[in-house]
Lab assay of single mutants.
Amino acid sequence: TRVETATETAWISLVTALHLVLGLNAVLGLLLLRWQFPAHYRRLRHALW
């Protein structure tokens, strides 16, 4: 059971790390998009709101 718990903890930390990386990538991607295409982003925002 100790090995199972260790594997579980490893999986949880792995999934958490993946989520963090994906979240960071999403934020960075959005920031890059805003920086690269400000006009396009503004138009998109007007369409959404």
Rank of each mutant, 00 (worst) to 15 (best):
47 A>V: 09
45 R>F: 07
24 L>F: 14
7 T>Q: 10
4 E>M: 05
30 L>C: 07
40 H>Y: 07
31 L>R: 01
32 L>P: 01
14 L>A: 14
29 G>E: 02
39 A>H: 10
29 G>K: 01
48 L>P: 01
28 L>P: 01
26 A>T: 08
33 L>H: 03
38 P>D: 05
32 L>Y: 05
27 V>K: 01
49 W>I: 06
20 L>E: 00
40 H>F: 09
19 H>M: 15
29 G>V: 10
46 H>T: 08
9 T>H: 14
23 G>I: 14
11 W>V: 13
29 G>P: 02
18 L>H: 00
1 T>R: 04
5 T>G: 02
32 L>S: 00
37 F>V: 03
35 W>I: 06
38 P>F: 05
41 Y>P: 02
44 L>N: 00
10 A>K: 15
16 T>G: 13
27 V>Q: 01
37 F>N: 02
23 G>A: 09
4 E>N: 09
29 G>L: 12
25 N>E: 04
44 L>W: 06
19 H>N: 12
46 H>Y: 04
29 G>S: 05
8 E>I: 07
48 L>C: 10
21 V>T: 00
7 T>K: 11
21 V>P: 01
21 V>W: 12
28 L>H: 01
33 L>C: 09
35 W>D: 04
4 E>F: 06
32 L>N: 03
2 R>H: 12
22 L>Q: 10
4 E>I: 05
15 V>F: 12
12 I>S: 14
18 L>T: 10
18 L>W: 13
22 L>G: 03
26 A>R: 01
19 H>L: 15
11 W>D: 08
47 A>S: 08
17 A>G: 11
47 A>I: 11
43 R>T: 05
5 T>D: 03
7 T>E: 14
1 T>V: 11
25 N>F: 15
13 S>I: 06
49 W>A: 05
39 A>C: 11
45 R>K: 13
9 T>I: 12
41 Y>S: 03
2 R>N: 15
15 V>S: 13
34 R>C: 14
36 Q>A: 05
16 T>Q: 13
27 V>H: 01
21 V>E: 00
20 L>Y: 04
5 T>F: 10
21 V>F: 10
26 A>Y: 02
19 H>A: 15
21 V>G: 06
9 T>Y: 15
9 T>W: 15
24 L>Q: 02
15 V>C: 13
28 L>S: 04
23 G>L: 14
6 A>H: 07
4 E>Q: 09
22 L>D: 06
18 L>M: 09
8 E>W: 13
16 T>M: 14
39 A>R: 06
24 L>W: 01
5 T>V: 07
22 L>E: 02
44 L>M: 05
27 V>G: 06
27 V>A: 08
47 A>Q: 06
10 A>W: 13
22 L>N: 02
34 R>K: 11
28 L>C: 11
31 L>T: 06
11 W>C: 11
7 T>H: 08
7 T>G: 14
7 T>P: 07
1 T>A: 11
46 H>E: 14
48 L>S: 02
3 V>Q: 02
27 V>E: 01
12 I>F: 08
8 E>S: 12
25 N>Y: 10
21 V>N: 00
34 R>S: 07
48 L>R: 01
25 N>G: 15
20 L>W: 13
7 T>C: 04
36 Q>T: 04
43 R>K: 09
1 T>C: 06
15 V>T: 15
18 L>Q: 06
4 E>H: 12
3 V>N: 03
44 L>E: 00
35 W>K: 08
23 G>K: 00
17 A>V: 12
41 Y>N: 02
